[in-house]
Design a binder for these strands. Structure first.
Lengths: 327, 327
DNA sequence: CTGAAAGCGCTAACAT
DNA sequence: ATGTTAGCGCTTTCAG
């Protein structure tokens, strides 16, 4: 392996000068610079980041914690994160936690061991204690999910307002019996969306019926199917349903048509997230769209600021209702 | 930051002893070990990987190159890679190349700069020259895609046999006019699957009709839709279609039902990959399943072997035909 | 404008 | 069983 010493010797200069050339410092004569650059070419020298990292005590690696790599909700966020990070000379380590504390710990340890500089956490099931603990000495940003009253900066949308908007849309087009497929209430976003659901109903004088509200353990097609099955078996069958995730809504769509019913005539359906699939279903899904890509870029921007020691403020972004064929 | 020196001083031993305790070497007295362990606890010492990495000249980071993070084809492969890697103390840097050479180069440079130890390439559009060049001095494995006659080890399935199997199934259930949605022939897998398609037809005395073969630039729903549109407009309309990717097949499904036609009665459809979503379509998609997870674990296993300097052999895995409602 | 040298935190060969 | 020490490759301060 050819190192900086070797280049210096070959070019007849000191390692300091090679380093200066490498970093575009103007304190080098054109002539010296040329000589060094030629030598670098000739020897095909590539500076090792290992040395650099140790010296500067940084890794330029950022961790992104997500529960499941296959959840399409994260795709565009990750794209945003990646593009911003790369353009600022950071790399992204995508970490699938499976919402398991052990798995999470591996990644937390990576930061403690200086193998990564900071974390963007998108796992709603993250171990809060551990995260807060880590945040004392390390740069951490939460994306999409967050903790009220805690000092970890976050970027998110207004979940309550978004759910309210979705349900209000269902009411406007004539539905009064609206089922709600929510995920586990231990997640803040689930509680907030539940609030939005209830608020919309109450505002229109529609009583909230507990038997219309369902909770799923995970976000996946099959959980949507199961919930839909229960909804369809209800005595006083709802005419519409709102699911907190497109995945759940798509599963429900499948179940509804499997029962020979028609969307939206027999049952209107609204999802959440506007994942790409949601336009491929039959009928195409009405859903809430979040500015994913932007959320990603903002999250890294905040993280990099934090890494520099700057003060960062949390951000709440706008959402949109995308009306398609399912309502 | 508390370092090994500090621990050594505090515990009244040498840094070597601390290092020995850290690495579970038995050459340390129980008493000394205890003292050191207590000190580590007390100071909350966490060894820095930066120092370790420089010293050992390794990063324990593996790159996984994929064209698109959102392509479900890769999900289980990645899961397999991750679990095997983590259990062997490696971490995975998932790299989205967008099939762009510039983007790819960023990652190749990461390896050259010793920031990563090796690469698993799954990008069929990878810059072959650059990859072969890199492979001269670095550990590289190809997964799913590969190069014939080149020395980079790979793990894959028999694409020709799989396509042959799919088309033969369509013939068996009574189809003679079978359209084929392939991706760009510049990819080896596309050429191999094309061979399988032709072989099945020829074996049953069915002439290969050029107008039944379509090529898409990318693998995405919308490309499948477009191709299906053309197929449906054909004078002598096919009664079945085989797509080289579930994504394409699902797009086709959407288009077919949008035209008021019925699958499988008017048009039987077979996909490829058995992505999760392929079971959520209406009707559920018949498809070819590859042992993704296993492919992933084998790929890392090969890479780690290579890193150790061992000789590795390429592997070809089995596939399966999963018959569902679309045929 | 350039060079010498310290040192980032760790491992491991060698010495005791 | 434990300590001493060189050195991984780099950046940066200080001197000249």
């Amino acid at each position: 392996m050819v190192n900086i010493q070797r280049v210096a010797k070959e070019a007849g200069v000191s390692v300091a000068t090679v380093s200066r050339v490498l970093h575009d410092q103007n304190t080098v004569t054109a002539k010296t610079r040329l000589k060094v650059e030629e030598t670098i070419q000739k020897l095909n020298y590539q500076p090792s980041m290992l040395g650099r990292n140790l010296r500067k005590s940084e890794s330029r690696l950022l961790l992104v914690l997500i529960p499941e790599i296959s959840n399409p909700f994260y795709f565009d966020i990750i794209k945003g994160i990646e593009s911003f990070a790369i353009s600022h000379n950071y790399n992204i380590l995508l970490c699938e936690t499976d919402s398991s504390p052990e798995r999470e710990n591996i990644y937390f340890d990576l930061v403690k061991a200086k193998m990564a500089d900071g974390i963007i956490s998108m796992d709603p099931a993250v171990n809060v204690e551990a995260l807060l603990d880590l945040a004392e000495n390390h740069a951490i940003i939460q994306c999409s999910e967050y903790m009220i009253e805690k000092e970890i900066p976050y970027v998110t949308i207004d979940n309550e307002a978004a759910a309210y908007r979705a349900v209000k849309h269902l009411i406007k087009i004539g539905n009064k019996k609206i089922a709600f497929i929510n995920s586990n209430q231990k997640y803040l976003y689930a509680r907030q969306r539940n609030k939005g659901y209830q608020k919309a109903l109450e505002e229109h004088g529609i009583p909230v019926r507990e038997e219309y509200i369902f909770h799923t353990e995970h976000l996946g097609f099959e959980y949507g199917q199961q919930a839909a099955k229960k909804i369809l078996n209800l005595n006083d069958r709802p005419t519409a349903l709102f699911a907190v995730s497109d995945l759940l809504a798509i599963g429900a769509l499948k179940e509804i048509s499997a029962c020979g019913l028609h969307v939206p005539d027999d049952m209107a359906v609204v999802g959440f997230d506007k994942i790409e699939f949601s336009n491929m279903t039959n009928p195409a899904l009405t859903t809430i769209s979040q500015p994913m890509y932007k959320m990603g870029t903002i999250a890294v921007e905040m993280l990099i600021k934090k890494l520099k020691g700057e003060k960062v403020e949390s951000v709440i972004l706008d959402h949109e209702l995308v009306i398609r064929e399912s309502t």
